[in-house]
Design a protein around this nucleic acid. Structure first.
Lengths: 246, 246
DNA sequence: GGCCTGCATTGATCTGGATCAAGTTGCAGG
DNA sequence: CCTGCAACTTGATCCAGATCAATGCAGGCC
C-alpha cells in the first residue's frame, strides 16, 4: 500500500524535534524539556490495514498519536449495524486520559504508524504539564465540533449531500497538507473503502456506490481510479454538500 | 412553567459553597481559594423558554454553567433543516474557551438559569488553574462520548429505537438525580416539545408523535400528560432502544 | 363561556434509500 | 494466462419515514 522504504523508519522513530507532525500533535506546545521527556517515553508501532488497534471495552494500555495513515473509530451494535464515529489522520490523538476503556473499536483503515505512550506514565505527565493538557483540551474541542458537524450530516443530509460533504472535507484536508487552497482541477485519494465510507455516512454500500456514480455522471467529480477523485470544480462540490456559504 | 418562587433566588445567586451543582460543574475540583475567585467573577442570568442564549457565529462574550433548566445546541442549514447537536442540563458547561464564536445556536428549551463568567477573565483564570482545566477536559471528553453515541443513533437506529433511546437517557438521568436506580413504575418529565425532540432525533414531528403513540399502545410507556412519561418497565424500554446489554 | 393560538395527533400518499440479487472489475497467487 | 476472491457496480423491488393535509385539544384572554 504505502511506500515500503518508509516502513523501516518506524523502527528508528527519530527525535521528536524532527517529527513531521511536531507542530500539530498533542506535544505541539511543549517546551524543549517537556519534549525530551516525551522523547524518552515514546514507542513507535505500526498496524496493518484492517487491524484493530483497540477493542471496544478492553482495558487501554497505551495512548498515542497517529503519525502516518488513517484510523477509524467504530461503534457496533449487537445485531451488526455499524457506525463510524470518528476518522483520525496524522497528528490526531488516540485514547482518552482518565478512562480505562473506550466505547468503540479503533481500527486501522490504512497501514497506520502510532507514536505511543504507556497510559499511566502519560497521565502522570499530563497532570504536571499544563502545555500538554491545554493542547489536549483544544484538540478535544475540535473533535467535538467535528462530531457535531457530523451529527447534522447524519440526521439531516441526503445521501448525495453526505457523499459530497465527505469529499469536500477530504479535499480541504488535502489542500491544507499541500499548503494551498482547494482550487480547480485538484485530485486526491479517498483513502477508505466503500464499506468504510458507508459506515461513516450512515448509508449502505449500494447507496454509496450509486451516489458516487451519480456525482460522476453529473460531472461534479471524475474517477481516475475507484479511489482517486479528480475535482474539476471544488465550489460545485461544496454546493452539492449543502454547506452554508462559508 | 417552573416554580415562580425559585426565580427570585437567581438574583441572589448564593455563595458557591451552597451551589446545588457544586460537585458536578467545571468548578467541582477547585480549592477554596480558587472558588473564592470564581465567586467574585460570577453573574447569574435567567433566560425564558425559547430565548436564544448565543447566536451561531456571533462573538461570545460570556461562558458559563447551566444551573437550572435545559438548553439545546442547534445547527441550522440555509434551507431551514435543523439538527440538535447537544442537550445541556444543570452542571453542563456552555461555551468553548479559546474560541471567539460558536458554530451553533444555544437556545433555552425551558427557562434556564446560567452562572456566567466574562470570557476573557475566565480564560485567564483557566490558564493558571489546572484544577479547572482538568475538569473541563474531562467534561469535554464526556460530551464527545455522548456526541459519538448520538452519531450511532442518528446513523443507524430506527425511529422507534431513537425515541426509546432518548427516553432511556432521560429515565437514567432522572434516576441519578433522585439518587436511585432506574426501576419499575418510575415517571419523569420529558422536558422538550415534540418539535425539539424531532430536531434531536433527526426525525419529523409526525414520525416522532406516531412512534410515541405506538410505544404507548404497545404498553412500553404510559402518558400521564403529553409530556409526563410513566414507565412500567425500564428494562423493556432499554431493550426497545437497541442497546448493548450493558 | 367562547374563541384564538400553538402544540399534538391522525390519516393518506409518496419517495429516498434499504434490501435482495446478479453482474463487473481488478488484482494476487498459482 | 487463468482462477479465485474481494471490492465495487448495477438492477429490481420494497418499505420506513417524509410529506401533505386535516383534525383534536388545552390553556390564555377578552
Amino acid at each position: 500500500m504505502s511506500i515500503p522504504s518508509l516502513l523501516s523508519q518506524d523502527a528508528r522513530a527519530g527525535r521528536c524535534g524532527d517529527c513531521p507532525i511536531r507542530h500539530r500533535a498533542v506535544c505541539s506546545q511543549c517546551e524543549a524539556d517537556e519534549l525530551a521527556i516525551l522523547d524518552q517515553m515514546k514507542t513507535y508501532r505500526t498496524f496493518t490495514a484492517g487491524e484493530t488497534i483497540i477493542w471496544a471495552g478492553d482495558p487501554v494500555a497505551r495512548l498515542g498519536t497517529v503519525v502516518k495513515g488513517c484510523a477509524t473509530l467504530l461503534r457496533t451494535m449487537e445485531d451488526g449495524r455499524r457506525q463510524m464515529v470518528g476518522l483520525l489522520f496524522p497528528s490526531d490523538f488516540i485514547g482518552r486520559p482518565g478512562r480505562e476503556t473506550t466505547p468503540y473499536d479503533v481500527v486501522a483503515a490504512t497501514e497506520v504508524t502510532l507514536c505511543q505512550f504507556e497510559r499511566q506514565s502519560f497521565e502522570d505527565l499530563l497532570a504536571n504539564t499544563p502545555s500538554l493538557e491545554r493542547r489536549l483540551l483544544q484538540m478535544t474541542l475540535d473533535e467535538l465540533d467535528a462530531a457535531r458537524e457530523w451529527m447534522l450530516l447524519l440526521g439531516r443530509k441526503s445521501a448525495r449531500e453526505k457523499i459530497a460533504s465527505f469529499l469536500t472535507i477530504l479535499a480541504r484536508r488535502d489542500a491544507v497538507l499541500r499548503k494551498s487552497a482547494p482550487g480547480p482541477d485538484m485530485s486526491f485519494d479517498m483513502i477508505i473503502s466503500r464499506e468504510a465510507l458507508a459506515d461513516y455516512l450512515g448509508l449502505t454500500i449500494e447507496t454509496t456506490s450509486r451516489q458516487i456514480t451519480a456525482l460522476k455522471n453529473d460531472g461534479v467529480i471524475r474517477l481516475a481510479t475507484k479511489r482517486i477523485i479528480e475535482l474539476p470544480d471544488f465550489e460545485r462540490l461544496a454546493a452539492e454538500a449543502g454547506e452554508d456559504a462559508a
